[in-house]
Nucleic acid binder design. Structure first.
Lengths: 192, 192
DNA sequence: TATTTTCTATCTACTAGAAGGTAGACGAAA
DNA sequence: TTTCGTCTACCTTCTAGTAGATAGAAAATA
C-alpha cells in the first residue's frame, strides 16, 4: 500500500474517533484495529500523538474553510449562505451514527490537557469562523435580508458558540431535530 | 477525619479536575494527590469511577437547580433574572484560573465514552435547564420586557446551547470578555 | 465501669491490562 | 543496494481496581 493511502486512512480514522470519543479516550490501539495496521506503523507516520493531532488540524482547518469560502463566494443570498454554513455543522451531527461533533469543538473541550501550540490551532479555527460569519452577516444587513440590534461581530460570536454548543447538546439528546429547531430559531432572530 | 469530610473533599476535587481536564483525563491518582489521601481510600468511598461520576451528578444537578430556582422565585424582573442565570455560567468560567467549564457540558462532550445511565443524567440536566429558561422567557414576554419572534421553547434551547458553547470557546481563547460580549448580544436580541 | 468485640476508614502492597513509544528485523520496490 | 513501510517484540508508565493489615472509635457485654 502507498504511503499516502495509509497516512490518509490513519488521519480519517483518528478524526472519526476523536469526534466521537475525544482525544483522551482515543488510543493508537483503537486506530490500529480500525485501520488494520500495527501500532508501530502508526508511530512511523506520526511519531507522537501530538504530531498526529497537529497534522489532523492542519488538514481539517483549511478543508473546512474551503467549504465555508465556497459558500461565501457563491452568488446566493446571505440567508441561503447562512443556512448552508449551519448545514456544515448539521452534516457532522447527522453523519454516520449521529455520534460525532466538530473536531475542533471536541479538542476545544480537552484544551487544558493539550500543548499550547494545539491551543493556538484551535483558537485560530474559532477566530476564522467568527471572521467569516461577520462577513456573512454584514452582507445580509447590506442586502436587507438580515436585521438585528447589537454589533455584527458580537452576533457572529453568538452564532458560532450556539452551533458548537448545539452539536454537543443535540448529540447527548440523540436528536438532530433539537439542532434544527435552534437553527430555525436563529433565523427568526436575524431575519429582517 | 470524618467520613463525610473526606467524601466531600473527594467530590470537590474530582469535580474541579473534570471541569478542567475532562472525565477521561482525570485519574484516581490525580484526586489522591490533590486530596492527600491514598488511591485505595478513594475506592473505599467510590468503588468505581462510574460510581464517582454518578455521585457527582447527583450532587451537582440539584445544587445547580437550587441556585436557578432561587433566581426564578425572586421578585426581580425577568431581565435581571436572566442576567443572574447567565451569571451562574460566567462564574464557573471566571473562577480560579479561568480553566473550568460546566461539569455537565464537559461530561456531555465525553458522553460516547460513558454508560447510558450517565447519559440520562446529563440529558436530564439539559432538559431541566430548558424548562426553566422557558419559564423565565415566558415571564419576560408577559411582563413586556422581552420580545422576540419564534417559539419560546426554541429560544430557551438556543440560549442554553449558546451558554454551554461559549463556556468552551471563551476558555480556549482565555478570554472571559468573549463570554460577556455574547451574553450582551443575547440581551440585544431578546429585549423589547 | 472495665473489657471485649465489631465497625469504620485508612493504609501498604499488589494485580492485570492499557497507554504511548522504541528497537530492530524483514520484504518489496526504486 | 539503499530506501521505505511494515512487522514482531519489547519497555516504561499509568490505569482502575483488589486484598488484606491496622489503628481508632463505637457498641456490646461482663
Amino acid at each position: 500500500m502507498k504511503t499516502t493511502d495509509t497516512r490518509l486512512k490513519i488521519l480519517d480514522t483518528a478524526q472519526e474517533l476523536i469526534q466521537k470519543l475525544g482525544v483522551n479516550a482515543m488510543s493508537y490501539a483503537d486506530i490500529s484495529t480500525a485501520v488494520g495496521i500495527r501500532k508501530a506503523s502508526i508511530h512511523y507516520h506520526f511519531p507522537s500523538k501530538e504530531d498526529l493531532l497537529v497534522s489532523l488540524l492542519e488538514r481539517y482547518t483549511p478543508s473546512f474553510f474551503r467549504l465555508v469560502d465556497s459558500i461565501l463566494e457563491s452568488s446566493e443570498s446571505a440567508e441561503i449562505k447562512l443556512r448552508r454554513y449551519c448545514g456544515l455543522f448539521e452534516a457532522t451531527l447527522s453523519s454516520g451514527e449521529q455520534d460525532k461533533v466538530c473536531l475542533c469543538g471536541m479538542i476545544g473541550a480537552e484544551v487544558k490537557t493539550l500543548s499550547s501550540s494545539l491551543t493556538k490551532q484551535i483558537t485560530h479555527f474559532f477566530q476564522e469562523n467568527e471572521i467569516r460569519l461577520t462577513k456573512l452577516l454584514t452582507q445580509g444587513k447590506d442586502e436587507g435580508v438580515f436585521s438585528f440590534s447589537g454589533e455584527t461581530e458580537a452576533m457572529a460570536k453568538l452564532i458560532f458558540s450556539l452551533l458548537e454548543g448545539e452539536l454537543l447538546i443535540a448529540r447527548v439528546h440523540g436528536d438532530v431535530t433539537h439542532f434544527k429547531v435552534v437553527v430555525e430559531q436563529l433565523f427568526q432572530l436575524v431575519k429582517a
